[in-house]
Simulated scan of single mutants.
Amino acid sequence: MCDCRQNRGHVLSRRSLVLGGATLLTLTCGGRPLRALPLPAEARSAPNDIGGDEALARLMAGNARYQADLPGPTCLSACRAAIATRQYPIAAMVCCSDSRVAPELVFDQDGGQIFVVRVAGNIVDTDGIASLEYAVRELNVPLLLVVGHARCGAVTAAVNVVRDKIEVPGHLTSLVNQIRPAVDAAAPLGGDLLANAIILNARTSARKIADSAPILAPAIAGGRVKLATAIYDLASGAVTLV
Rank of each mutant, 00 (worst) to 15 (best):
M1C: 10
C2I: 06
C4S: 07
R5K: 15
R5Y: 04
N7I: 04
R8A: 09
S13H: 13
G20E: 10
T23F: 11
T23S: 12
L24D: 15
L25H: 15
T28E: 14
T28P: 05
C29E: 02
G30W: 01
P33W: 05
L34N: 14
R35P: 07
A36T: 11
A36G: 12
P38G: 05
L39N: 00
E42R: 01
E42A: 04
N48H: 03
N48P: 05
D49K: 03
D53H: 11
A57D: 12
R58N: 05
R58I: 07
R58A: 03
L59W: 03
M60D: 08
A61F: 01
A61C: 06
A61M: 00
G62W: 00
N63W: 01
A64H: 10
R65T: 06
R65E: 02
Q67P: 04
Q67H: 07
P71R: 14
P71W: 15
P71Y: 13
G72Q: 09
P73F: 14
L76P: 09
L76R: 15
C79N: 14
A84M: 09
R86K: 14
Q87W: 04
Q87P: 01
P89Y: 01
P89G: 09
V94H: 11
C96S: 12
C96V: 05
C96G: 09
D98P: 05
D98S: 05
D98A: 14
V101R: 11
A102P: 03
E104S: 15
V106I: 15
D108H: 06
D108T: 07
D108F: 02
D110Q: 12
V116S: 14
R118M: 03
G121S: 09
N122L: 10
G128L: 07
S131K: 12
S131N: 15
L132E: 06
L132W: 14
L132M: 12
E133R: 02
Y134Q: 08
N140M: 10
P142S: 10
L143Y: 07
L144C: 01
V146P: 04
V146K: 04
V147C: 10
G148S: 11
H149M: 03
A150N: 09
A150R: 06
C152Q: 00
A154K: 00
A157N: 00
A157G: 03
V159G: 01
N160P: 08
V161F: 04
V161S: 10
V161H: 01
V162P: 06
K165P: 02
K165V: 10
K165R: 14
I166E: 00
V168P: 01
G170W: 04
G170F: 08
T173Q: 05
V176P: 00
A182Y: 01
V183R: 00
A187M: 08
L189I: 02
L193N: 04
N196R: 10
A197F: 04
A197G: 05
I198Y: 07
I199Y: 02
R203W: 07
R203N: 11
T204W: 13
I209P: 07
A210L: 05
A213Q: 09
A213F: 05
I215E: 06
L216R: 01
L216C: 11
P218G: 00
R224K: 09
K226H: 08
L227F: 13
A228S: 14
A230R: 01
L234C: 00
A235G: 12
V239H: 06
L241K: 03
V242L: 10
V242S: 05
V242G: 13
